Computed example of a mutant assay.
Amino acid sequence: MKIIREILSWIIPIVIGIIVALLIHRYLFMFAKTDGPSMEPNLQDGERVVVLRQSKIKHLSVIVFDAHGLDPDAKPKSDYVKRVIGLPGDTVTFNRSEGNIYVNNQKVNQNFISNSERMNGSDYFDIDKNWDLKSLSRNWTRNTNSVRVPKGEYFVLGDHRSVSNDGRYWGYVPKSHIKGVVKAFPWSTTKETRNNINNLSY
């Protein structure tokens, strides 16, 4: 009996610790590492971030979501990091001649990326011209340059528009796929970049 009690005195704390860690990962926060250049210049390839599970998703929040079943090329357990442009019910419009995005007729302040980064088309399908929603939304139910985000879903873009595989191609991100809101570590970025990840909203 003494041996059993001794074994249990070791096992029980370990089991409790594992359960607590799993609950924290499931409901509070997780850690992630970016893969690829789609969020440059604000998140670099290989940069580590914390993902807050319960944070409110706002305009311009950076989120992590499960892309499997959304992007036809995404394999199981493929997490993407993108920026939220449109919330459920928003109307998103891209003015190609200006390079500006409008949400509910309000111009989005995109000072977190340069003018050339806003204007450039994407290389994802070898498109050598400025992107627009009409030409890229061939898989969407509405083929138009002004789209309404469905209830319970979000429209996302990468900051590095010229290479980002995002909502322009495969549509919207359901709430059920979202794992949380990204926060950059204070020591891993400049103050300006950190603000572009942690504090932007409109």
Rank of each mutant, 00 (worst) to 15 (best):
V64Q: 00
Q44C: 02
I57P: 10
V62W: 08
D66Y: 01
D45S: 08
V62H: 11
H59A: 09
H68M: 01
E40T: 09
H59W: 02
G46L: 14
G69E: 02
D66A: 02
G46A: 14
S61Q: 11
E47T: 08
E47G: 06
L43W: 12
V64N: 00
G46W: 11
H68W: 11
D66F: 02
H68S: 06
Q44A: 09
S38P: 03
L60P: 04
G69Q: 00
D66V: 02
Q44G: 03
L43K: 06
F65G: 07
K56F: 10
E40G: 01
V50L: 12
F65R: 03
H59S: 14
S55P: 00
S61V: 09
L60E: 14
R53N: 13
Q54A: 14
E47M: 08
H59I: 07
F65E: 04
S61I: 06
K58E: 15
V62M: 08
K58V: 15
D45E: 04
I57C: 06
V50Y: 10
V51R: 07
H68K: 09
K56M: 11
V50M: 13
L43I: 10
E40Q: 13
V64A: 15
S38I: 03
M39K: 05
R48Q: 14
V62S: 05
S55W: 11
V49C: 09
A67Q: 00
H59P: 06
M39R: 03
I63D: 03
I63W: 06
K56D: 08
S61M: 10
Q54T: 15
I63T: 01
D45H: 03
